[in-house]
Design a protein around this nucleic acid. Structure first.
Length: 876
RNA sequence: GGACGUAUAGCUCAGUUGGUUAGAGCGCUCGCUUCACACGCGAGAGGUCACAAGUUCGAGUCUUGUUACGUCCA
């Protein structure tokens, strides 16, 4: 960062905050709740965790949604983007508990009421962080209607849904295995569990048949749980054990008799093909036990030590000690048949780092089949479309094998379950029960239960608000793939069940942005990047060093636009690796565009460049200039393409297509071509230049909103905010295929001469005399070609170097810089290439089967290519 | 172990239903203080499209197999 400000460089840090303030104070982010539902475009943001800070996934998803929102706002849609945060039960509770511990107290000491108050206060103070970070990114959401999954109306929506599902018999209470964390002595959610790969020992243990006719050998990594075994299972299709189903075995060390059951969960090719069934300590066994009506025993307590009274010798031992002791005893008793290393993934607690102990406890659940079927239908019949399409298969697969959902969490922060108990009585209702002696269920609901209501609860449901009528169903849900089940599927179920309509028409699953080494971006691995460090500048983590092993240094302050562009350009239908180059590419585009506007503004200074009422920059019927017709046509095409790509969620193509247009057409050619003209005496130029820049800024605005808004105000004749401007309807009258073709030839000609110059070592400066020996170039085209190729078109004869161009050749006359003799080797090389290609093409055309079987247009294209090559060969 | 996905330039990625001499950005090389821009302008080098068979007039693209990697599920 230099001390002196270079005025040719756009400074995002200066421009962005001011631009954002202008948008917000103009109130353009708010939709009209009374608008026509048919003209609505709405999005409910996936609510980020209230404890969170913006990470790369949020930044990508925020950029994606903002592109959709801004494009549709400029189309004149009535736009609503609901923003807000999720109360995130465990994460938030953990944060506050940590603070209490630091103060030398605990949640148990201060009590539930004080704890919840304390957490509310914490949220008031810190919960807005991520929302403000979204502002930095340029997110144009409706901040005035920010929602929280525990605000007043939302609590009512959650309770109403719970009570309704309870009354309909879909919510019930039962025993279930939870993820018990022996370290923190509480149940934790799946989200707080991380799978780690460990190497355990797979033990093979013989269980003798009760009738003495032999034995079965089971394989297990957790022999200590055998004390609570209730059965042995084999696959009914497994011929080895076909005769055993229905017989029984004797459990070693304990002596209990266990039935042998058949269940096709058992894999015939894993372990020994016999599985011990311990419903009290393994989720899969629990399912199998349920299917077969087996009882559930437990032999491990909440402290992770052996209990149960099945084998007193091991009681009180930790699971690890018990494992050693049990294996020893089995070995001594001759029951241990084999042991081998076995690498697999097992769950660990994020909080304590201890291995999760599945534990049986009383929980609230929800039956899912009845809710799942309509959600399956909605995707099958296309009312909800999932992009990319491949993800819908995963969605359907999961719903088709859906299992009951455990709703209750042993936490204090969240939606407390609206159920009260008195003796054997149970009451479920929104209002507390009348009478004395009732006690409320202490548990809260899984955070995803309330999140599932997000698309409609944020619009005021269960009240029939104007917002709900206008903006529900929402248009698009954009999210990371990994919560397709946890969240998306549940929103579809709840939307169909309660408001009675799908919650959104399109679901877009965006890429996961990985670290350069292909790992996930993660704070703990040091592979994460704070998007604010890219926007404002900040330390670059070591894995992102430009050269391996070198000091990683700092990110430059790329600004929000560059970060948005880069993330969108990186995004794909699959996971992608983060590339700082794409962010830098965005910064280049921004600088380029800013300078283009600077150039145009200089030309247009003091001119009236109001457009005719129909919006067309070209005077009707007038003989407009080639380059003007060309840029108008090209701009119109890019406008359509970019919008179409955004509509089909191809954000990378939209962003990179913009880059190519701004660099490769607008700046490289149009601005260069018009430099010979003077706006003050050329009314066409003023209009077309202003039009092309304005349209380009409009097209680019959804992707790079700040710089385009800043530039918008610098073009004469624009008023109001770009973000609030209306896109004109597509206009076929602006398309001009002839102009595109004709100027395309001029560009090819100029490029051919430049290329020759460079490879022939002719200095770029001098203007060389040359003859244009080619058809199809009018005076205008000749003038452009001469100026940008730096040649002077003459009629003189003489020795010359020939450069092949569309329609013929340019003969550069021999002179100070041009020596035809020195050209020989270059020409010979090119001739060899052309001859080889002619040979290939002629052979293809001469192939009888090609001529007869290939489509006519392919054959014609080959013939045209051959003709072109033969023409070039003549010039060589 | 199962399912799905991915292998294209030094790096990160495009590449429509098979059809010109496979593209872009970055990096690299050469040239340029061309009056919007050196975060610039012009030109260029660089690819056995992972490997092996097959289908076809024609394969980066389709089929099968192999290898490597990734994600999810168990």
């Amino acid at each position: 960062m230099s001390e002196t400000q270079d005025p040719t460089r756009y400074e995002p840090a200066e421009a962005e905050p001011a631009v954002f303030d202008r948008w917000e104070s103009a109130g353009i982010f708010a939709g009209d709740p009374e608008g026509d539902p048919a003209n609505s475009f709405s999005i409910a943001i996936p609510p980020p965790n209230v404890t969170g800070a913006l990470h790369m996934g949020h930044a990508l998803n925020g950029s994606i949604q903002d592109v959709l929102i801004r494009l549709n706002r400029m189309r004149g849609k009535n736009v609503r983007w609901t923003i807000g945060t999720d109360h995130a039960g465990i994460a938030t509770q953990t944060k506050v508990e940590q603070a209490l511990v630091d103060e030398g107290t605990s949640r148990e000491q201060i009590g539930r009421e004080a704890f919840v108050e304390r957490t509310q206060a914490w949220r008031q103070q810190y919960g807005g962080t991520i929302i403000n970070q979204f502002r930095r990114l340029g997110v144009s959401a409706d901040y005035a209607h920010e929602r929280f999954t525990m605000d007043e109306g939302y609590v009512r929506a959650v309770q109403q849904v719970f009570v309704a599902l309870y009354e309909q018999g879909l919510i019930y209470r039962g025993t279930y295995l939870v993820n018990w964390d022996p370290g923190s002595r509480s149940a934790i959610s799946d989200l707080e569990v991380e799978d780690r790969e460990v190497t355990d020992t797979l033990f093979e243990i013989a269980y003798p048949l009760s009738d003495g006719s032999g034995e079965v050998v089971v394989a297990t990594v957790r022999p200590e749980t055998m004390l609570a075994d209730v059965a042995v299972a084999v696959n009914p299709a497994d011929e080895r054990f076909a005769g055993l189903i229905g017989k029984s075995v004797v459990l070693p060390l304990v002596g209990r008799e266990l039935p042998i059951i058949g269940d096709d969960y058992v894999k015939t090719d894993f372990g020994t093909g016999c599985l011990k069934i311990t419903p009290g300590h393994d989720p899969n066994d629990f399912e199998i036990g349920h299917r077969h009506g087996l009882e559930t025993l437990t032999c491990i307590g909440e402290d992770g030590r052996i209990t149960g009274g099945y084998a007193p010798a091991f009681e009180g031992l930790s699971t690890a000690e018990a494992r050693t002791a049990i294996v020893e005893e089995l070995r001594a008793g001759g029951s241990l048949r084999a042991e081998e290393d076995y690498t697999h993934t097992v769950p660990f607690s994020h909080r304590s780092g201890e291995r999760i102990e599945p534990l049986l406890s009383l929980q609230w659940f929800m039956k899912m089949e009845e809710l799942a079927q309509p959600a399956i239908d909605a995707v099958r019949d296309g009312r909800v479309r999932i992009h990319p399409e491949s993800q819908s298969r995963r969605y359907l697969q999961w719903l088709e094998e859906i299992r009951p959902w455990v709703l209750s969490r042993q936490l204090w922060w969240g939606h407390q379950i609206p159920v009260w108990y008195r003796g054997d009585e149970t009451y479920c209702g929104i209002e507390p029960p009348r009478g004395e002696g009732w006690e409320r269920d202490p548990d809260v609901l899984d955070t995803w239960f309330s999140s599932a209501l997000w698309p409609f609860a944020t619009l005021g449901w269960p009240e029939q608000t104007p917002e709900l009528r206008t903006f529900y169903p929402t248009s698009v849900l954009s999210t990371a793939r990994d919560i397709l089940f946890l969240w998306v599927a549940r929103m579809v179920m709840m939307g169909l069940r309660f408001p009675g309509e799908i919650p959104f028409g399109d679901v877009y699953c965006h890429s996961v942005i990985q670290a350069p080494d292909g790992r996930r971006m993660s704070k703990s691995l040091g592979t994460g990047i704070d998007p604010l460090a890219l926007i404002d500048g900040g330390p670059r983590p070591a894995v992102f060093a430009k050269k391996k092993g070198a000091d990683a240094g700092e990110f430059p302050a790329y600004g929000a636009d560059a970060v948005r562009f880069g993330l969108l350009a990186m995004s794909s239908t699959q996971d992608v690796r983060f590339s700082e180059e794409k962010i830098a590419q965005g910064r280049q585009l921004i600088t380029k565009l800013s300078n283009a506007v600077r150039f145009a503004a200089g030309r247009l200074e003091g001119l009236d460049v109001e457009l005719p009422a129909d919006g067309s920059p070209l005077a009707p019927g007038a003989a407009s200039r080639l380059e003007d017709r060309w840029i108008v046509s090209r701009t119109e095409r890019i406008a359509r393409e970019t919008a179409a790509r955004i509509d089909e969620f191809d954000f990378a193509k939209a962003a990179l297509g913009l880059y190519d247009f701004v660099y490769g057409e607008l700046c490289d050619w149009y601005l260069e071509l018009v430099k010979a003209r003077e706006a003050a005496t050329d009314p066409d130029l003023g209009r077309v230049l202003a039009w092309a820049l304005r349209r380009t800024l409009q097209i680019a605005h959804p992707v790079i909103p700040f710089v385009t808004e800043d530039a918008w105000g610098r073009i004469p004749g624009t008023d109001g905010l770009l973000a609030g401007s209306r896109l004109p309807a597509p206009d076929d009258a602006l398309l001009d295929g002839d102009a595109e073709h004709d100027l395309g030839r001029v560009i090819e000609l100029i490029s051919a001469v430049r290329s020759w110059r460079s490879t022939a070592n002719v200095p770029p400066g001098p203007i060389l005399p040359a003859r244009l020996e080619a058809d199809g170039y009018d005076d205008e085209a000749r003038a452009h070609a001469a100026r940008l190729a730096r040649v002077e078109l003459v009629d003189g004869a003489g020795d010359a170097v020939l450069v092949a161009v569309p329609g013929g050749q340019v003969a550069i006359l021999a002179g100070e810089h041009v020596d035809p003799d020195a050209e020989r080797s270059r020409i010979a090389k090119r001739r060899a290439e052309v001859e080889a290609e002619i040979e290939r093409t002629a052979a293809r055309l001469g192939n009888e089967k090609f001529a007869s079987r290939a489509p006519a247009e392919v054959v014609a294209a080959e013939q045209a290519k051959l003709d072109g090559l033969r023409e070039e060969l003549r010039t060589l």
